[in-house]
């Protein structure tokens, strides 16, 4: 389904005279928030595939109002859990990109990810914590990689949990550092109930991603993650 969506996007891109679909999706990936919130029918993987290999045009969400409206108005049943969060980190995009690009670093600040093993330039093997002490594993591909700007990944066909995501690094105004935006989507796999996925992803996925990004920021800015676990207290 995702690949079809990608194909549809690409074919539209070739026919649309005013603004190519590829650019539109690039605009969504590159632009501001809320647009994705309204994306109901398209899978994130479709979007990411569509823009893979293309230049990442930066448009604000307001660059194409009609698209934004269209997207926000879109209706449909969405089984995916999709979250989007942004944080500003007082480090260069290059430093942040380099740390993130080594996926084996991700468990350092992502609590739901137990481990990531990098297999080769594109592929990696992920192990995530699941409810009741279980784990879920899958292989993922980097499907879009733009140094110091964007990394997009998606699970391979037949993964236990179909998931995809991207992280984008863009300069914050003036001397305020780098804006790091993460969008992730987990699709409900066959035979697995949505609630289980929700648990995997935390009771409140938005908050979980928010916490993970905050830990990423702490780690990058201060070299450690603030904690009180293990401190003194009255029994």
């Amino acid at each position: 389904m995702e690949t079809e969506a990608g194909k549809i996007n690409q074919s539209q891109a070739e026919t649309d005279e005013t603004i190519s679909d590829k650019e539109r999706w690039a605009s969504i990936v590159g632009g501001s928030a809320m647009v994705l919130m309204g994306l109901q029918q398209r899978s994130l993987r479709g979007i990411l595939t569509a823009i893979a290999g293309g230049g990442l045009a930066y448009h604000g969400a307001t660059a194409d109002k009609s698209l934004q409206d269209k997207v926000v108005d879109a209706t449909g049943i969405n089984k995916a859990i999709r979250v989007e969060k942004t944080v500003t980190i007082d480090k260069s995009a290059e430093e942040l990109y380099n740390y993130w690009h080594n996926f084996e670093n991700l468990p350092n600040f992502m609590k739901h990810v137990k481990s990531v093993q990098v297999l080769d330039m594109r592929r990696s093997h992920w192990v995530a914590n699941a409810p009741l002490g279980q784990t879920i594993e899958w292989d993922a591909d980097i499907i879009n990689d733009q140094p110091n700007q964007l990394i997009a990944w998606a699970s391979e066909e037949g993964a236990q949990v179909d998931n995809s995501g991207f992280v984008r690094f863009s300069p914050a105004p003036s001397d305020r550092g780098t804006e790091v935006k993460v969008v992730m989507e987990y699709n409900v796999p066959g035979g697995m109930v949505t609630a289980a996925i929700a648990k995997l992803f935390g009771e409140e996925p938005e908050q979980q991603i928010g916490d993970e990004l905050r830990r990423f920021k702490q780690l990058m800015e201060t070299g450690e993650i603030a904690t009180t676990e293990g401190q003194s207290r009255g029994q």
Partner: peptide
């Protein structure tokens, strides 16, 4: 205060971005 975030660097030490492990509550 962590000393390395935007707030600390601009001498707004009590607004440190990084020193509250329960930031989600405050948010």
């Amino acid at each position: 205060s962590c000393g390395s975030c935007y707030s600390c660097k601009t001498a707004q030490w009590s607004l440190c971005d990084n020193s509250n492990p329960n930031a989600f509550m405050a948010e």
